[in-house]
Design a protein around this nucleic acid. Structure first.
Length: 263
DNA sequence: CGATTATGATTAA
DNA sequence: TAATCCTAATCGC
C-alpha cells in the first residue's frame, strides 16, 4: 500500500535489518536475474526514499531503483529465508531478514546520473530532511489546475497518493476542485502542515490513519476503514453526517464532503 | 473459479 | 483520456 510513508519506512527498515553484511540477492521469478546477480554478495550500504521512489546503494557502480506502483510489495519474510511464495522479482537475504519484492512497476539498476534525473523531477518530499516548501508553494500559486490534481502531482509534492490527497483536503476544509491558485497563503500552510503530520504518522504506524492515531492500539481486525479515514472510500461524513461525493481529478476518484469542503 | 479491485505511473493516441 | 504493466486478495456465482 504504497504512498510516500510506505517507501520511507521501507528504506528505514532495509537499512536497519540488512545492516552491512553481504546479502544474497536473486530473482526467484527470473525476471531480474542479471540485476540480482550484480548485487549478490554485496552489502547494502544505504537505502533511501525520494517520494514514492526507492534507491538502494550496494556499493557498486549502479544503484537499485524500485518503484512499487499500485500493487507492488516489498516485505520482510524473516530469517532464515522461508520458501518462496508467489511471483518474487527480487529476494534479498541477510542474516536477520529476508526481503521479497513482488509486483513492482520498476525494478532496475540505474547509473547515479539516472537517479539524479529521476529525483530532479520530483517536488518537495515532506518526509525528507528540509524539504523545499517554497518551491511547492510557488507551484501551487502558479497553476489553475484543481488543487486535488496538484496534490497528486509528484513534481509538486513527492509522496502524496490517492488516499492522502483526499484526507488532507478534507482536514483542511478545502474543496478538491478549487483552482490551486485560489488558495490563500494560510490555506497552503495548512495543507503543507497536514501533509507532513499525516505522512509522519503513516510512517510511524506503517499504515494510513488520519483520524485518531491512538486507534491503532486496537487489534487490526477490529479497525474498519471508517475508523481510520474521513473520506477515502467512505459514504458519509464523519463530522457532519452528510453524504459524501466523488469527483474525478487527475484521472482518479477523490471523495469529499460538500458541506465541510465548500466550493 | 473467474471477475474485480487496489494507496501508481508511463506510454500511446 | 485510454491502454498498459505488475500481483494478490477479495468477492460473487
Amino acid at each position: 500500500m504504497p504512498e510516500g510513508h510506505t517507501i520511507h519506512r521501507l528504506a528505514r527498515d532495509l537499512n536497519a535489518t540488512l545492516g552491512d553484511a553481504p546479502v544474497v540477492a536473486w530473482s526467484p521469478q527470473g525476471r531480474f536475474d542479471s540485476g540480482a546477480a550484480a548485487l549478490d554478495g554485496r552489502p547494502l550500504v544505504k537505502a533511501e526514499a525520494w517520494g514514492k521512489y526507492l534507491f538502494c546503494d550496494f556499493g557498486t557502480d549502479q544503484v537499485l531503483h524500485v518503484h512499487l506502483g499500485l500493487i507492488g510489495k516489498f516485505r520482510d519474510r524473516g530469517a532464515p529465508a522461508p520458501p518462496v511464495v508467489g511471483e518474487i522479482r527480487l529476494r534479498l537475504e541477510g542474516p536477520g531478514a529476508t526481503w521479497d519484492l513482488s509486483g513492482p512497476t520498476r525494478c532496475e539498476l540505474v547509473d547515479p546520473s539516472e537517479q539524479d534525473l529521476i529525483t530532479a523531477k520530483l517536488g518537495a518530499d515532506p518526509l525528507r530532511h528540509r524539504p523545499d516548501v517554497g518551491s511547492a508553494r510557488a507551484k501551487f500559486a502558479r497553476t489553475d489546475r484543481a488543487v486535488g490534481a496538484v496534490l497528486l502531482d509528484q513534481s509538486v509534492v513527492a509522496g502524496i497518493g490517492n488516499v492522502y490527497r483526499a484526507e488532507i483536503l478534507f482536514l483542511c476544509g478545502i474543496h478538491p476542485a478549487r483552482p490551486s491558485r485560489s488558495l490563500t497563503d494560510d490555506e497552503f500552510d495548512q495543507v503543507w502542515a497536514e501533509t507532513v503530520r499525516l505522512l509522519r504518522i503513516g510512517m510511524r504506524l506503517g499504515r494510513i490513519i488520519t483520524t485518531d492515531p491512538a486507534e491503532v492500539g486496537r487489534p487490526r481486525s477490529r479497525m474498519t476503514n471508517a475508523d481510520r479515514l474521513y473520506v477515502y472510500h467512505q459514504e458519509f461524513c464523519r463530522r457532519c453526517g452528510d453524504q459524501l461525493r466523488t469527483l474525478d481529478l487527475g484521472g482518479r476518484p477523490i471523495g469529499f464532503c460538500p458541506t465541510c469542503q465548500p466550493a
